[in-house]
């Protein structure tokens, strides 16, 4: 599944980034690499960007960006 589908409060591990070039690099700058653990921490009150905890930082991604990140959810 992709990161935008990860329910709030759940954890997952990144498996792949389905995006090229500058945008991919920016995601990697923010700590999103295959193998990174992510935690969907909170969603903006207006419903769109979501803040994910990634490698100790709280990183905000808009839905269309999160859609490019493939993840494997972690059973809780």
């Amino acid at each position: 599944m992709t990161l935008d589908e990860l329910p709030r409060g759940d954890r997952a591990v990144v498996t792949a980034l389905d995006i090229r070039g500058g945008a991919r690099r920016r995601l990697m700058d923010l700590g999103l690499l295959p193998g990174s653990a992510v935690h969907a921490e909170m969603t903006s009150p207006l419903g769109d960007p979501t803040a994910y905890e990634i490698r100790g930082a709280l990183v905000v991604l808009r839905r269309e960006q999160a859609r490019a990140v493939h993840v494997e959810p972690e059973g809780r």
Partner: peptide, 8 residues
């Protein structure tokens, strides 16, 4: 373009 925001 690419969007990035961090919450410190």
């Amino acid at each position: 373009s690419v969007y990035s925001l961090e919450l410190p």
